[in-house]
């Protein structure tokens, strides 16, 4: 095989990794604070992608307006999921919490089918490509990558330097102690879910540049996103960031060497094997 294909795949892997990292960080943030895996997280992304699609194709909004609007839609979805589904079962058995968000997954997929049928819809953006040394870099991938890096930087600053951001990290380490500092845990949960939802909204916009949306879109990225979170260590943000790029590289390179599905299979097998070697994630501190 021409090595140029491999280089191109490697670069595409990095570009995809940025968007995956946005997804993984959003999910991991929620997990870290609430200790619940939102199985339906990427299905919320699907819903937000429809929102973006209708804003752009239906109402002719500019991408620059629809993008931030989708972010807000995501945040509102995050809050709604927390208040309607998570909040009543905060103290239930973990399996029930998991299944409640699993029920949400069925609900979102079928409700989307009901509303919008199984047609694939895409926001057609005609953007040019740049050519560097014989490798074509389409702007539909470069721009989302750049935005995702900026967004993660913003998230980092938020978690690092604001009171509520630091409180979110603190709650993920000790819920009760943070209540003793005067923070209402419920409020911290809502803010966390809103931020996690906003990340889903952002990811929706970025994914819309390259992928068409359909009701089962979540199946394409959902399992992958969980795996990235686990690989990086549940609740570990830096780990999730690193793991996103590891997984996207495997998928991209495996994809050109074998087939798309085999790329995923290899990634998942790598994931399983790594889990055995480092059950706490690749960056887990050895206690």
């Amino acid at each position: 095989m021409d090595p140029i294909f491999l280089v191109e795949a490697a670069i595409n892997g990095i570009l995809l990794g940025g968007v995956l990292a946005v997804l993984a960080l959003g999910l991991n943030l929620i997990f870290g604070v609430l200790d619940i895996v939102w199985i339906a997280y990427v299905d919320l992304v699907m819903l937000a992608m429809y929102a973006f699609y209708f804003m752009v194709q239906g109402h002719g909004w500019s991408v620059w307006v629809a993008g931030p609007a989708t972010l807000v839609v995501g945040a509102l979805l995050g809050i709604a999921v927390h208040l309607l589904i998570i909040s009543p079962i905060l103290t239930s058995a973990p399996i029930n919490q998991l299944l409640a968000t699993g029920g949400l997954l069925f609900f979102l997929q079928s409700f989307a089918t009901f509303l919008w049928t199984t047609d694939h819809r895409s926001v057609r953006l005609s953007l040019p490509s740049v050519e560097i040394g014989g490798i074509f870099l389409p702007f539909t991938r470069v721009i989302p990558f750049a935005i995702s890096i900026l967004a993660m930087l913003a998230l980092y600053l938020f978690l690092r330097h604001t009171y509520i951001g630091t409180a979110i990290r603190a709650v993920s380490q000790d819920r009760d102690a943070m209540a003793l500092m005067g923070a209402n845990p419920q409020r911290v949960y809502v803010v966390t879910s809103a931020v996690g939802g906003a990340m889903a909204g952002l990811a929706a916009t970025l994914l819309s540049f390259q992928y068409s949306v359909h009701p089962f879109f979540g199946g394409q990225f959902g399992p992958l996103t969980f795996m990235i979170c686990v690989l990086g260590g549940l609740g570990n943000m830096v780990g999730a960031f690193v793991a996103s790029f590891v997984m996207s590289e495997i998928i991209a390179i495996g994809g050109v060497m074998f087939s798309t599905e085999m790329g995923y299979v290899i990634a998942f097998v790598v994931f399983i094997v790594v889990m055995f070697a480092r059950p706490g994630g690749i960056l887990a501190r050895r206690e």
């Binding site: 009171y163 630091t166 990290r169 102690a177 943070m178």
Partner: peptide, 23 residues
């Protein structure tokens, strides 16, 4: 000041103190 200290182990000392002044 709870039994067993219950500081936030992953936060820095300064961040812990900052959380004390949350209100």
């Amino acid at each position: 000041v709870p039994e067993g200290r219950r500081i936030f182990p992953g936060l820095t000392v300064a961040e812990n103190l900052k959380m004390g002044a949350f209100l």
